[in-house]
Design a protein around this nucleic acid. Structure first.
Length: 483
RNA sequence: GGCGAAGUGGCCGAGUGGUUAGGCAGAGGUCUGCAAAACCUUCUACAGCGGUUCGAGUCCGCUCUUCGCCUCCA
């Protein structure tokens, strides 16, 4: 089966084939680094992380670029207000460079904990001012842009398809709802800034042929995408809220320069809501990742995100997270059980599960369905293992391999080996094992003597003090870390 | 006002014309010294009203409701 991706441009699922066989070029809009990452960032980058992982699993070499926006863009309307990074610098009594560096590191820390693989190239906007200036010069030369008082604007009338991505092709209609007063120096109300002259006191500014100033926000993605991935890229991802104007502007300026299609597949992920309302920094209801991670395993958040489709809104609530945590624990439990299992004689066919998993992923990255396949496999495996004949060595190995491939490599929700991972944290494996062996012996003896008070105390206290859970099973005692 | 998405059982969340999504929670059971885990059984659905069809959660129309975008935002 082949991969189908929902293309926002055209609003249908289309069969995906890269422009150049075997190689996929992919660009995703990165964060503006002036604050800690929140759940919305997690949804976006986890979703696209799975896209990249699936493409790679499918045999493609993926060149994945995700930018860091570290040029201050404005807090307020299109042409007034303080820039966000400068504002944060003022609040934190430091300078913009430190702000962007600090929050860039913070962003990667959080993404690492979510098991989001780093992009191949993570260019920052401030490091690509010459490229952006070049692009403006070309746009002016070809009549797509004009300069007024040190500001440069893109002329939307020079690009007939403007607004085709968002469906906002009638600019008079668009402008009728605009709540911001328009600068009269623009030729058309919808024209957008490519370069802005720095106001008095503006900290992040660069020299250009037009003024000492800074580039418009839409420009960086076009310039960096072209520099690292070429004039036409296979996939461009981003949040739905950026369809208009950001992505429509990118298309206009890029295609005006190259005369070629800018992006073949546009992918837009949906928003996170909290109690049904959009989460936003300005609404003061944003859920900071570092704060959630104090209480919740980051992989539970990742799992929670992937349990809904990337194009669906995700509503955050404590009960929903709790349900996800229990569900993920179930899959981990099965994974552990598979690992420690003695082979039996029963046969078990995992190919239907592999096939359904692949079909789900090939259908526009349907992670909720893919996860449901893992649950069904989990149930089938447990059922089989509960029977006396068990599962043969070969089938056990296949099931374990499939859990590793799907749960760990592709979805990123399962670790390779919890136990080993946790033992590493504990330090000396041998000594630790010896201690556990001793506790097992003490409990076995106590239980033999019907001293259940003692055996239960060892079990309960160990769980309470260290989070290590002992279970009594038919095969004997086992332990695992309970997160 | 314009553009777009969506309304599924207690909660989350799949389903693109025809036999069970899945998870969490609830009820009953098996196993167990107990606990945990696991398994089995089970209760609540498709916003409303029309229409197309042998047959609609799934297509069409209308109504109601919600959400996002049109200002920086993942």
């Amino acid at each position: 089966m082949s991969l189908f991706i929902y293309n926002s441009l055209g609003r249908t699922k289309e069969k995906f084939e890269p422009l150049n066989p075997g190689i996929v070029t992919m660009y995703v809009c990165g964060p503006t680094v002036y604050g800690h990452a929140h759940l919305g960032h997690a949804k976006s980058y986890v979703s696209f992380d799975v896209v990249v992982r699936w493409l790679r699993h499918s045999g493609y070499q993926v060149k994945y670029v995700q930018n860091i926006t570290d040029v201050g863009h404005l807090t307020d309307d299109a042409d007034e207000g303080e820039d966000k990074i400068s504002k944060q610098a003022r609040l934190e009594k430091t300078d913009p460079m430190e702000i962007s560096q600090f929050y860039t590191r913070s962003f990667y820390e959080d993404m690492d904990r979510l098991e989001v693989q780093r992009p191949n190239i993570a260019p920052n906007a401030a490091g690509h001012i010459p490229e952006q200036i070049d692009m403006i010069e070309q746009l002016i030369k070809t009549g797509h842009a004009y300069e007024v008082n040190g500001n440069v604007y893109f002329s939307v009338e020079s690009f007939p398809g403007y607004g085709k991505l968002s469906g906002r092709t009638d600019q008079d209609a668009v402008q009728s709802g605009v709540r911001v007063e328009v600068r009269s120096e623009k030729r058309h109300m919808s024209d957008f800034a490519l370069w802005k002259k720095a106001e008095e006191g503006h900290l992040m500014k660069w020299s250009s042929p037009w003024s000492v100033g800074y580039p418009g926000w839409h420009l960086e993605c076009s310039a960096m995408s072209m520099k690292y991935l070429g004039e036409t890229i296979d996939i461009h991802g981003g949040g739905m809220e950026n369809k208009f104007p950001h992505h429509d502007c990118e298309i206009a300026q890029s295609e005006s320069v190259t005369g070629k299609p800018y992006v073949r597949f546009w992918m837009h992920n949906n928003m996170v809501t909290v109690n049904g309302i959009k989460m936003g920094k300005s609404l003061k209801n944003s859920v900071n990742l570092k704060e959630i991670f104090n209480d919740i395993d980051p992989l539970v958040i990742r799992f929670f995100i992937l349990q809904s489709h990337y194009r669906s809104q995700l509503d955050y609530s404590e009960t929903a997270i709790k349900a996800s945590a229990t569900g993920l624990e179930k899959l981990r439990e099965t994974q552990r059980r598979l690992r420690g299992q003695k082979p039996g004689t029963g046969s078990f066919d995992i190919t239907p599960y592999q096939r359904r998993f692949s079909e789900a992923m090939d259908d526009d990255f349907s992670t909720p369905v893919a996860i449901s396949v893992l649950f069904e496999l989990s149930k089938a495996v447990n059922s089989a293992l509960d029977r006396s004949e068990g599962i043969s060595l070969l089938s056990l190995q296949q099931a374990e391999a499939f859990f590793d491939t799907s749960g760990r490599d592709i979805l990123g929700i399962l670790k390779q080996d919890d136990q080993d991972h946790n033992r590493e944290i504990k330090g000396s494996t041998d000594k630790f094992d010896a201690i556990m062996e001793l506790l097992f012996e003490l409990r076995a003896e106590a239980r033999k003597n019907k001293n259940f008070a003692l055996s239960d105390k060892i079990r309960d206290e160990l769980l309470r003090l260290s989070g290590i859970e002992i279970k009594d099973t038919k095969e004997g005692q086992s332990w695992s870390f309970k997160s």
